[in-house]
Nucleic acid binder design. Sequence first.
DNA 1: TTGTAGACTTGGAACAATTTTA
DNA 2: TAAAATTGTTCCAAGTCTACAA
Length: 561
Amino acid sequence: RWEEERYPEGIKWKFLEHKGPVFAPPYEPLPENVKFYYDGKVMKLSTKAEEVATFFAKMLDHEYTTKEIFRKNFFKDWRKEMTSEEKSTITNLSKCDFTHMSQYFKAQTEARKQMSKEEKQKIKEDNERLLKEYGYCVMDNHKERIANFKIEPPGLFRGRGNHPKMGMLKRRIMPEDIIINCSKDSKIPSPPPGHKWKEVRHDNKVTWLVSWTENIQGSIKYIMLNPSSRIKGEKDWQKYETARRLKKCVDKIRNQYREDWKSKEMKVRQRAVALYFIDKLALRAGNEKEEGETADTVGCCSLRVEHIKLHPELDGQEYVVEFDFLGKDSIRYYNKVPVEKRVFKNLQLFMENKQPEDDLFDRLNTSILNKHLQDLMEGLTAKVFRTYNASITLQQQLKELTNPDDNIPAKILSYNRANRAVAILCNHQRAPPKTFEKSMMNLQSKIDAKKEQLADARRELKSAKADAKVRRDEKSKKTVESKKKAVQRIEEQLMKLEVQATDREENKQIALGTSKLNYLDPRISVAWCKKWGIPIEKIYNKTQREKFAWAIDMAEEDYEF
DNA sequence: TTGTAGACTTGGAACAATTTTA
DNA sequence: TAAAATTGTTCCAAGTCTACAA
């Protein structure tokens, strides 16, 4: 259905109408009996100061609030919201006692959980109304779901990892901050009474409906459409088509960079080694970042000398590179990789006379790399390698792991294993769930119980058989049959549980979601489901099926990535 | 060439809803 | 039927990459 209209270069839509954003609910002051204490004495805060104090109080149980930087940033920003009297009294965060406030919020949460069915129902209906009213827009001839129509509420910024700005106040966004984007001939959304938009524009070269500038990094935030929308789906499809084009020329590119390892030019050698890492290890490009503005994380081009160790020999392997660095979201990348001798020698060369904190690829950045890639293939950038290698790995692993004789749960285990191979390649990790050990034990006891049940059923079958042999009548024959079926059923259940246990154990620290949603050409999965008669619901939940509707429509069982 | 704003994708954790279990 | 476990959804931060100006 997307092929209906063709747009001229750069034009994203012709008609766009929406209702504008939903703002965060206004601050509700605390009841009189909820106290804040400073230096052991009750202190009544001004509304503005109180609001910011509640942000801190709500996080009191979190490790964040014990961190030096968090406390420093918070206190600095909090003081800005205080009246001059408050400012002169409250000079030390350690003397602030938020525990009463914190208890109050905990009680509120508890009360919310204990609400009656009717009350919960009412909240649900209110949410649905809001969604119906503000959650959709019309883009060209389609009604589309909006991904994030609610403006982010004010609060304390929590970066990931060791973020220098953690604890800073994320200010409340007002209509005066908001830029509305829609078409001229649409019904333009009206700002809340007594307010004005910052700007209304009609830019059909972009896909966003609403934008504002956030105060922590000064970056722009957007309201955009849901992944199920035409505009996102088409782009997603294109992404995989680009990766498939890479498939056709990847051998040539690999030969090229292997040649370039020998280049006379340092820049070319560095480029070639970096590209090799991006290709072989699925590293991210690694843009430069402004120092002190964000956590210290790196990608390929921004690797520093301190992030790798060279081992001429390690555990019986030659030329091993040991990687240890923090990547996106401060997730650690740790890997020991044997590499070609030439790569190893080049790395030694790149590291010569450098300090640990110096760039490994000092003649290279993402812009140079991507320009080169653009010359190798139109539309090729560093991230395409991640998409390509992820998708090709899934396809190849599915081929290798799927056993035609397996039943459905076993086949799904194979799918998850293929998915897992990709997640490991892309270093998609998660914190092991807090209840992991316990849930593993529960599952094991279920398995044990099932085994006993199976033994019982087998015994019963045996005696039924013996009985039938003696009696030789229809009724006892029937009993044998039904006992046989029972054994079979229990065997199947046991197998299912065992598969589940394996799957869970292997998945302890691996996050499958990101690769499934962003890196794996969905047509590979759709084709696999069709080929083996696996219902697509077993692989994709409702949201995922909506996002991948285009692929479910398009792919047949013989689809090749 | 370098710097910066802007637009869009990718990412894990927190939270909420649903299902299973005791 | 409540609580626990599991699964799905939301949140919003943190990347990539392009365009454009100096």
